[in-house]
Amino acid sequence: MIAERLSSRVVRAVVVVLLVVVIAFPLYWLVISSLKPSTLLGEVSLIPSQLTLDNYRAALAGPIPGWMLNTIGIALCTTALGVTVASLAAFGFARYRFRGRTILFGIVLASLAIPEYALVLPQFTIMRQFGLLNTWAAVILPLAANALVLFLLRQYFAQLPEELFDAARLDGAGELRLFWTVAVPLVRPGLGAAALLLFLNAWNAYLLPLVMLTSSDQFTMPIGLAFLHSQLNFSIVEESPWGAITAGTVISTVPLIVCLLVMQRHFIGGLTAGAVKS
Rank of each mutant, 00 (worst) to 15 (best):
P122H: 08
T125Q: 15
V108L: 12
N134T: 12
T84N: 02
T78D: 05
A75Y: 05
A86M: 10
A80C: 10
G106H: 14
T102H: 13
L76E: 00
A90S: 12
R97P: 03
F93Y: 14
A110V: 03
E116Q: 15
M127V: 00
V108W: 14
F98L: 05
R128W: 11
G100T: 08
Q129L: 09
W136L: 06
M127L: 04
T135R: 14
V120H: 05
F105M: 01
L76D: 00
R97Y: 06
G73Y: 10
T125I: 08
T79C: 04
G82F: 09
V108D: 07
W136K: 12
W136R: 15
I74G: 06
L81H: 04
A113K: 08
R95D: 05
A118N: 02
G73L: 15
R95P: 05
V120D: 00
G73W: 13
G100R: 14
M127D: 07
I72C: 04
I103H: 09
G131I: 08
I126H: 08
A89C: 06
A94N: 10
A75W: 06
L132K: 04
A137H: 14
L81Q: 04
G73P: 00
L133D: 12
I103A: 11
F124A: 03
A86K: 11
G106Y: 12
F93V: 00
A86G: 03
A89P: 01
I126N: 05
E116A: 13
N134H: 13
G82C: 06
E116D: 11
G92H: 14
A75V: 08
G106N: 08
A89L: 02
A137D: 12
S87Y: 02
F130D: 07
Q123A: 03
F130S: 10
T125N: 15
W136E: 09
L109C: 08
I103K: 11
F98Q: 10
T78N: 11
R99F: 12
V108F: 06
F130Q: 13
T84C: 13
F98I: 10
C77Y: 03
C77F: 13
T125R: 15
F91S: 02
S87E: 01
L104V: 02
I74T: 04
T135H: 11
T102K: 15
N134Q: 12
P122F: 13
A94Q: 08
G82A: 10
I114D: 03
I103D: 00
